[in-house]
Amino acid sequence: MKITVEIQRFNPESDSKSYTQKYKVDAEPTDRLLTVLLDIKGTQDPTLGIRKSCAHGVCGSDAMVINGKERLACKTLIKDVAQGEGAVIRVEPLRNLPIQRDLMVDQHKFFKNYMHVKPYFMSSEEPKEKEFRQTPDERQKFEEGTKCILCVSCYSACPVIQEVNPNFLGPAAIVQAARFNDDSRDEGFEERLLQLDYPDGIWPCESRFECTRVCPRGIKITKTINLTKRKIQQHKS
């Protein structure tokens, strides 16, 4: 089917501000949007800037705003975002981070916040046996957080970062902290607590659910944040 892809463009070496460029393409309804964008890059405009790698939704490279919503381009089929001949798909870079070029944003702040929560396993003891024992139920308790691919979608969609507090730690960092806090083998809760329990830490979250709505891994982010808040409150009282 014939569709138009409207892409927000910006090249810091030649543009003073962003502008929209339209490309007409012929695409199958079952094509991945990433494939279509790369076709545009390969055959119409090689200057289009975009990050990509795995092409099937597991590496987190190609999150962008598609028709107003954060999605992975490789996990978005044309039929998901364009209905019928002549449909228009609008593609923009992620929000809440500086644009580097076209669809690429500077993710340093996101990763800095991620590292801030000490997102790694901490244990003072060696396991008694070869492995730390953990029942399937205990393992299930932190399943949600292990799914995160650090794609930045939730950070981009967060209305609190957009409207209230640009220094808010952001959803993904809290999900990553919870992944360890809820792991029966881990002993880092107290240390991570310091990284979460401060004004720009976990508390700015207003449970607006935008993160949960966009997460391509289906992580129940808002719920995880609220459970973590409760855990901190219980610990302090």
Binding site: F121, E131, F132, Q134, T135, R139, T146, F180, D183, R185
Partner: peptide
């Protein structure tokens, strides 16, 4: 595993 890798588990852990 000792570095924290979340392997799937048997009922015995």
């Amino acid at each position: 595993e000792n570095k924290g890798l979340p392997f799937s588990r048997t009922p015995e852990g």
